[in-house]
């Protein structure tokens, strides 16, 4: 199968601005290669500072990579001009960690999900409202709540709203940047179920960025482990989880809090 997204040898340096000395460049990405098949979930796991979010920003065309290439559906993103990028961007959507800061608190839920239609000048006015309500339905936000402003919603509702907004332009790829990390366990379960449902019904491709190996193990088909700007291990979720090869993978797995096996004294009792 043709990969939906193919990243090759991507390098991103920061700190080459006017105040920094030229030697102080920081390689946030140091030769990353990754390919994502359509309708699958690829988890990108790594410690903070390993370059996960920088990679996400480069893929979403929000940062320009220093070198290397990103191709989406076989098209090299670097070859596109601003007008062509504008047409491509709706295909790739982002959901961030903290829904409270990625939604305008004074806008109503309905306004927030309809905004992408205005920005991309799609559909007629009445059509926009109908589509927005349908999106809210998909993520189980009721008509009553559609009229509430974002600051009146709970954390889980806000994240569902952020997902609905990401779905508005019928994207192919959704980048979930720590989208579950800030939520309570019971809400995490709700949202991860929602993500699985949406993937099955809409054929979405997810790039799931996280430092929680537990959730990655649950949701992903493929797992790529990042360490200091490189992908140090990647493969099917089973392989990475059950026979990790790289030191960084083993360290992350060991640090993941878990308590699936009760301690011995309780089994005897």
């Amino acid at each position: 199968m043709q990969p939906l997204l193919k990243v090759e040898n991507l390098v991103k340096h920061y700190g080459a601005g006017r105040s920094a000395r030229s030697k102080d460049k920081l390689a946030a990405l140091d030769g990353v290669s990754l390919s994502v098949l359509p309708k699958t979930t690829t988890a990108l796991v790594g410690e903070s500072g390993s370059g996960k979010s920088t990679l996400a920003l480069c893929i979403a065309c929000l940062e320009h990579p220093t070198s290397g290439s990103i191709s989406f559906e076989g098209i090299d993103l670097a070859s596109l001009d601003e007008n062509q990028l504008r047409l491509l961007r709706p295909q790739i959507q982002l959901v961030f960690q903290d829904p409270a800061s990625s939604l305008n608190p004074r806008w109503t839920a309905l306004e927030i999900v309809s905004e992408p239609f205005f920005v991309q000048r799609r559909y007629s006015k009445p059509d926009r409202a109908v589509r927005a309500l349908r999106l809210l339905d998909r993520v189980a936000i009721s008509r009553k709540m559609a009229a509430r402003s974002a600051c009146e919603l709970s954390g889980g509702q806000k994240q569902r709203l952020a997902i609905a907004r990401a779905l508005a332009l019928e994207p192919k790829l959704i980048i979930l940047d720590e989208a579950l990390s800030a939520l309570d366990c019971s809400v995490q379960a709700q949202i991860s179920n929602l993500l699985l449902e949406l993937q099955a019904s809409l054929g979405l491709t997810y790039l799931f960025i996280t430092h929680d190996f537990g959730m990655a193990a649950h949701l992903a088909d493929q797992i790529a482990v990042m360490d200091r700007g490189r992908v140090v291990e990647s493969g099917s979720a089973e392989n990475v989880l059950y026979s990790p090869n790289h030191e960084a993978t083993r360290a992350l797995l060991a640090a993941t809090p878990r308590f699936s096996e009760p301690p011995a004294e309780l089994v005897h009792a």
């Binding site: 019971s186 991860s192 190996f213 537990g214 193990a217 649950h218 809090p257 699936s260």
Partner: peptide, 21 residues
Amino acid sequence: RCLPSHLAEPPSTRKARLHVI
């Protein structure tokens, strides 16, 4: 019950629905 049975789960139950409250 909401937690994904961390890493211990057999491959077949991955991507299954989690329990919710």
